[in-house]
């Protein structure tokens, strides 16, 4: 059913998803809006087009896996899971509350649809590689989609995992590097220069697709290509993105890494997002 959504429909679904992100973080008064918005197109394209999943059977062995290695932006994934029917939409209102399945960082034991618990940066990619290898060992054709942050790529374990993905010919692994050029303490160039992020993945033997990561058409084209090329090489979509994309006052502002909007800011964000729907 995912294949039927047009680019325009995906764009509108992404606006819906972003509104849920803002709504959740506003209600929780806690969370990470900036990165949740920069990764939203990737999450939307995965859950509403590329991924073969069964929301009514979250642990279906044949499902495509999704790993939010940059776990702090889980509101984007939670919104997608709710919109796909993994759990009722009202659950989104419980983000970060005591007893909620929607922990501050994804918990696979508490939340249906989470394939691995993440939150400590640098670790999710290795887990995704393990899943991709398991598919190969079992002769199964599921794919593994992993979102990593540009700041997260400071972690050495990311590159250890890349080496393993190459060695074990994980062409069923699709990494999205969310290159918004902002980390918690400042710009990537200030904190730890990425130098050539795409070139690094290329050097590790990945097929690399460089796109505007907030452009749905480019995202869909890159994903379609990445999942179709079965040449034994892992794939990385390096997406140039804007942290806070879609909410003017959050865009490219390092201060919106982990801050919740107040009421006035919330209303402005929702109003701005409302203008971003397109004709279908």
């Amino acid at each position: 059913m995912n294949e039927k959504l047009s680019i325009a429909q995906l764009k509108n679904t992404c606006v819906d998803l972003k509104k849920h992100v803002i709504d959740m973080i506003y209600k929780a008064q806690s969370g990470h809006p900036g990165g949740s918005l920069s990764v939203a197109e990737f999450v939307t394209a995965c859950y509403f087009r590329e991924m073969n999943v069964r929301p009514e059977e979250p642990r279906w062995p044949g499902r495509d896996r999704f790993v939010m290695s940059k776990g702090h932006v889980c509101p984007a994934q939670y919104a997608a899971l709710a919109m796909r029917g993994y759990f009722p939409m009202e659950v989104l209102d419980t983000l970060r509350r005591e007893g909620s399945p929607l922990q501050g960082h994804p918990d696979m034991k508490k939340c249906p649809g989470i394939d691995i618990s993440t939150g400590s940066l640098g670790q999710g990619l290795a887990c995704g590689v393990g899943m991709a290898i398991a598919a190969k060992l079992d002769g199964m054709d599921y794919r593994v989609f992993v979102a990593v942050g540009d700041g997260e790529c400071n972690e050495g374990e990311i590159w250890e995992a890349c080496g393993t993905a190459y060695k074990y010919k994980c062409d069923n692994l699709i990494v999205f590097a969310d290159y918004n050029n902002l980390q918690l303490d400042g710009t990537c160039d200030e904190i730890m220069p990425p130098v050539d992020l795409a070139g690094k993945f290329r050097a590790f033997g990945f097929d690399v697709y460089e796109i505007d990561g907030n452009d749905m058409e480019e995202m869909v084209r890159a994903l379609d290509l990445a999942v179709s090329v079965k040449n034994g090489r892992p794939k990385c979509i390096v997406g140039r993105t804007v942290k806070g994309k879609g909410v003017s006052y959050m865009e490219n502002q390092v201060g919106w890494h982990g801050t919740a909007p107040n009421t006035e800011q919330y209303e402005q964000a929702m109003a701005e997002l409302d203008t971003q729907y397109v004709e279908c």
């Binding site: 990619l125 899943m131 398991a134 250890e160 995992a161 080496g163 393993t164």
Partner: peptide, 22 residues
Amino acid sequence: LNVGIAEQNAAGVAAGLATCGK
């Protein structure tokens, strides 16, 4: 599997494998 001199990655890869029944 031999993932080289990369223990942190080994732990993560193992976790991913374990989620798939290994």
